[in-house]
Amino acid sequence: MKGWMGKFKVLSLLGFVALFLSACGKENLTALDPKGYGAEKSLDLIILPTVIMSFVFLVVMVIFTIALVRFRKRKGREDFIPKQVEGNKTLETVWTIIPILLIIIIAVPTVWYTFVLADKADAKDHINIGVTGNQYWWHFNYDGMDIQTSQDLYIPVGEKVYLNMLSSDVIHSFWVPTLSGKLDVNPENENTFYIEAYEEGVYWGKCAELCGPSHSLMDFKIVAVSKTEFEQWVADMQSVDPEAVPDNEMAAQGRELFQENNCIGCHAIGSSPVAVGPNLTDFGNRTKLAGVKDMTKENIVAWLLNPEKIKPGNKMTGAYPKLSEEDASLIAEYLMQLKPSEITTEDAGK
């Protein structure tokens, strides 16, 4: 029994180590391979206590194993009555003082970086973006730039970008593991923090506070592009003409249906502050449909016909006239050609 157990323990331990080394998660989603300032500092403070605590665990396990092996009841010793020890002042002092020292080693950098990460003194010198959490999508409003967008947040690489976050309904939590730890998006008290991406890339973001049935489908992306590309993107977004009629015949029909069915009442195109539903200015460039589905025409049509099936509990279901499949297809044509900028996720290195 015992030998078998020992083998099992060794095997399972090796298994876990192998698993850990082979994959610390998907690139640009995992917190274990940080590419931003906040995530980097968090990882430092994940590693330090892990090392210290693993040492403590090792000490406990060594004493535990020796005690079990040495002092287990043996033949010929069944009736042995051990000495009734009350305690040991020296030992007890040792295992009070050492943990206190270990805790101090962890506590000092913790407090230090808690203050460093909370420092917002230079917010005025950087890009500020208003973030609104909604069931179940994200809205972004670039301060002083006259740009509104949803779901995909474009930022310049290597620069601090301040996010000022508020929820329009219930509590959400803004989490892009590879760039930074999370911060709640509350219905009151605007929360501010900054993200800074070291590398270009498309980073996965997730909502981390239970917000309703589609909580797990409230994904978003952060698209970090080079500084010049970002400036280009800003210029393109600012020059969008919301009234533009597409050249494509089908898309033009789709635009008319978009107007007729009053989609525009909730979904702005251009920098209108209307944000009952996601802003669709750069919809054609989105990485994913509704945050989670592949950006195909089929999926868009499926969404338009029955959004409830893709995101249970979303606010669009039942809020618009029923569409025929043809109409949905035409609207999809229109939406897919909304590509105001040459700068896309392709430019983010991926």
Binding site: A31, G38, A39, K41, S42, L43, L45, I46, L48, P49, T50, M53, I106, T110, Y113, T114, L117, S173, W175, P177, S180, G181, K182, L183, A208, E209
Partner: peptide, 13 residues
């Protein structure tokens, strides 16, 4: 580890 606030920004929820 979760008491380490800066790291908890990752662990939390």
């Amino acid at each position: 580890m979760v008491a380490t606030s800066v790291a908890d920004y990752q662990y939390h929820d």
